[in-house]
């Protein structure tokens, strides 16, 4: 499963629609399972592509029952009545919706409609399954539940899937590969952990997960690290990411808030391979499972730190922050997120 992720207007939905054949590209080729689907203006019509699709608004036909919605594609593909009935009851069973075959979409809840849309998409066992922000119209609890259902379904059926979303959680949880897009261009692609651990630039770092971006000056590059000065004094080293993009002695690095340990007062002598900074706690926000600290560094910049309870520092305290150089990632230049 591939996820396309990016801010709205980045072209991810257009890409999906080009794959589905709903939009005609001016140039370029689309190849799926070894078949050329479009080449320049010559295009295979969407109905011939044997794909399944789940729409953001579900796009269930309101004048048809659940059964007829699901069997629509099967009928068009020439299945006989018995096959259709068997297939529909099979997919409805997978979705725990067997009791609802004779209902109209208007009589179903949002989550149930989503399940029907999913059942419709997989009914003809398409080679390729497309998802266009399928969960964005659901409330938070349902969204999480459906996320796991889609994941287990996809693993069970093993279909090639393309999943468009603007939610990093969905992308991280569901995908084998994530493609981060911006302004119609692919910024980075890779496995979820790879993207999360080594974002290519500030945009990716900020879009996939929380992060702190720190600018460094007077940068020096060595074999395994890049080191530079903080605006407010002190030095910092990054052991991951790309070392080749430092310009004019400057670079940016990213460190996730959860990678940072925080302690009140001075820490003992730093170990090798650890960045150590001191600052003042400006604010502490307790949200249950996670505690957010906003620590003001001497140069005026806030660093966000997340820990699990208990609370390790109070507002106004001077604290020491420590984080692994290997988990500090040097970024390519690019627009800040």
């Amino acid at each position: 499963m591939v996820s396309l992720i990016g801010p709205s207007g980045c072209g991810k939905t257009t890409t999906l629609r080009i794959i589905a054949g709903l939009e005609t590209p001016t140039s370029g080729r689309v190849i799926g399972h070894g078949n050329t689907l479009s080449d320049g203006a010559r295009v295979i019509r969407p109905e011939l592509r044997e794909m399944g699709m789940v729409f953001q608004t579900y796009a269930l036909w309101p004048h048809m029952t659940v059964f007829r919605n699901i069997s629509y594609g099967l009928r068009r593909k020439g299945y006989d009545t018995a096959q259709i009935a068997a297939r529909v009851s099979e997919v409805l069973g997978m979705m725990n919706m067997s009791d609802h075959a004779d209902r109209y979409p208007g009589q179903l809840s949002g989550g149930q409609q989503q399940r029907v849309a999913l059942a419709r998409a997989i009914a003809s066992r398409p080679e390729i399954l497309l998802f266009d922000e399928p969960l964005s119209n659901l409330d938070a609890v349902l969204r999480e539940q459906m996320r796991f259902e889609i994941r287990s379904l996809q693993q069970e059926l093993g279909m090639t899937s393309v999943y468009v979303t603007h939610s990093q959680e969905e992308a991280l949880a569901l995908s084998d590969m994530i493609v981060v897009m911006k302004d119609g261009k692919i910024i980075q692609r890779g496995a979820p952990r790879e993207i999360y651990d080594t974002p290519r630039n500030a945009f990716v770092a900020g879009f996939i997960g929380l992060t702190n971006i720190i600018d460094l000056r007077d940068v020096a590059v060595s074999a395994d690290r890049i080191e530079g000065r903080l605006p407010g004094g002190g030095t910092l080293a990054a052991g991951g990411g790309s070392f080749d993009h430092a310009r004019g002695g400057r670079t940016s690095v990213s460190i996730r808030p959860s990678e940072i340990t925080i302690a009140a007062g001075e820490l003992p002598v730093p170990e090798n391979g650890i960045n150590v900074l001191t600052g003042t706690v400006r604010d502490v926000v307790f949200t249950g499972g996670v505690i957010d600290y906003f620590v003001n560094l001497p140069g005026g910049k806030d660093l966000r730190v997340q820990t699990v309870p208990p609370v390790r520092a109070e507002r106004g305290q001077t604290v020491t922050l420590a984080f692994d150089i290997a988990r500090t990632i040097a970024l390519e230049p690019g627009d800040p997120a």
Partner: peptide, 22 residues
């Protein structure tokens, strides 16, 4: 919504079938 027509195309109906059935 246009997506109702598009869904029909994706699920295997041509332009005319979509017009007539959706």
């Amino acid at each position: 919504g246009p997506e109702l027509e598009e869904a029909s195309r994706v699920f295997g109906a041509g332009e005319l079938a979509t017009l007539l059935r959706i």
